[in-house]
Design a protein around this nucleic acid. Sequence first.
DNA 1: CGCCAAATGTTAGCGACTAACATTCACTGT
DNA 2: ACAGTGAATGTTAGTCGCTAACATTTGGCG
Lengths: 172, 172
Amino acid sequence: MTAALELFAERGYDGTSVSQIAARAGVTEMTFFRHFPGKASVLVDDPYDPVIGVAIRRQPPGPDPISRAARGIRSAWQQLPQPSVEQVRTRLRIVAKTPTLRASIAGGTAATEAVITDALTSGGTSRREALIAAGAVMGALNTALLEWSLTDGDDLGKAIETALDLLEDRRG
Amino acid sequence: MTAALELFAERGYDGTSVSQIAARAGVTEMTFFRHFPGKASVLVDDPYDPVIGVAIRRQPPGPDPISRAARGIRSAWQQLPQPSVEQVRTRLRIVAKTPTLRASIAGGTAATEAVITDALTSGGTSRREALIAAGAVMGALNTALLEWSLTDGDDLGKAIETALDLLEDRRG
DNA sequence: CGCCAAATGTTAGCGACTAACATTCACTGT
DNA sequence: ACAGTGAATGTTAGTCGCTAACATTTGGCG
């Protein structure tokens, strides 16, 4: 993983091949694929889904599933151990600057969307509305995180807050 | 394109190779890639971006960029020539059932997101909020379209309406 | 010291995609 | 009718991500 991040920083994501990563790690291409399911997986690792699920369920149901999801994620974020901001930033920066990767995180968020959808439906929201709300929330969050990664010295928490406020606290 | 859609229906997206498509089309693999930038591009073709841009700009600015974007898209959708619903459905159905494709449409919506972002910022919204609003709207719409494609006999316009209403018409 | 299992290596192959170069095709002007 | 020209197509060869089948090493343990 260290080798990969170094090379991505040096030559960019598309500019570095898996065999180069393996070589710098003193290892074969094969053993790379035994540790990571794919080249993109070096940059993603998102174990937050369960926490998000219960946090959303704890929010009072209401007519607006988007707001409920947003409140749940805010609460989850606050109780989560804050990750190393600079590490998150370097990773996300690579994603933000690589179109193919931007696309592929959508695959990573699919699981989170499913968790949000389930949490919302358990509160009485129709499945269709829950799906849409989950899509909207994840769309907003992903965009906010990528944009944040490209700026300097800004607070990660504040970026998330901006996104959640915009989703939740409309016409205000 | 006809050959590709046939094969996707027969063997699934991942189960058909580009050379198979080319063969059925009576053509070489190379000339496939000269017509389509990639295998996924057979299923996507989204010339609506300019219309969306001007439609959003026409909406009165307000404190809530998400609502403005949603209203703009609703208006654009109403004045657009309605596409052949069944054709849209078969295409989207393939996308919905193929995880790798679901991810790759995110790449296709990047352009639309940029258009929405620009339209919103021209109305006084900050760049960060405009980006987030665009992400939320596209996330909701994509999810709604994919979910719609998997159902039978439902109205496409109604599915879009559900998404836009949820985004725009909060708390009630 | 020998044994077993996990980690790693080797080889071979598929599919998406690209580049460099050759070829055919359709159409134009003389 | 004919030569010429530019676009569309074919050919070949190669890179990269990724997988499968089988061999090899490695490390701990009785």
